[in-house]
Design a protein around this nucleic acid. Structure first.
Lengths: 121, 121
DNA sequence: CGGTATCCCCATTGATACTG
DNA sequence: CAGTATCAATGGGGATACCG
């Protein structure tokens, strides 16, 4: 699990630590190349491993497997195994993952502002 | 500069790409171990290199130098050189860096919610 | 004081092959 | 189908030393 401990931060005021910890948790949940594409791939409906894999350009099985495990631990996706042959495994977004949308919107808005600031115009 | 290009994303719907790009820009600006502590260190007043270094536990000169350069490129801090001997260099937060506060709040709020979700209770 | 220059480690990611 | 195993590459970050 990706919950941080306080001594990983280089800032002494106690209050800032208290604020920084959850910020870092949130950043970690969204970090990396694949987590957002996976959430997007699952946003219309639940999907199977290979379906997700095909929807996401360039991801390897290993990465998809690892990221899905992480996200399951973080309760962003559920993994459901159906007892068929060949095996059927279905991944779906959780309610909890939907609470991320405000954060993602805030990131999108600021990112858009930032592009204007950096690129100019 | 850390502006992303569209082909780095594994998701085909055009609209999702358009949304994901600024999200990734924003995440990149906040990513890494030191950027938030640096912003916090500069939040009360402008500071010199060594002052920041002392305020942030565990950071090396190399990392501080590199992060400050990144943040200057991203217009989150300004670097002002005073022609004295020995040299005096002062770093300060920009107005633009203050527009980050909404994002950081959103991250903090979601991170707090997430901790409750994961750790339980 | 305010940094660079070097060297090095190791964690993350990727490529490829294989399996229950 | 839904992954795991193995190995190789890449690069972020740290330790240390040095410089204008």
């Amino acid at each position: 699990m990706s919950i941080k401990k306080t001594d990983e931060f280089g800032c002494e005021p106690k209050e800032c630590m208290a604020a920084l910890l959850p910020v870092r948790d949130a950043l970690e949940v969204l970090s990396g190349r694949w987590k957002l594409p996976i959430l997007i791939a699952l946003s219309d409906r639940p999907k199977r491993f290979k379906e997700i894999s095909k929807d996401i350009n360039g991801i390897t099985d290993k990465m998809l497997s690892k990221e899905l495990k992480d996200m399951e631990i973080n309760k962003l996706v559920t993994r459901t195994v159906y007892d068929t042959f060949p095996p059927t495994v279905e991944y779906a977004r959780t309610k909890h993952s939907e609470t991320l949308s405000d954060v993602i919107m805030a990131l999108k808005d600021w990112g858009t502002l930032h592009r204007r600031e950096i690129i100019g115009k």
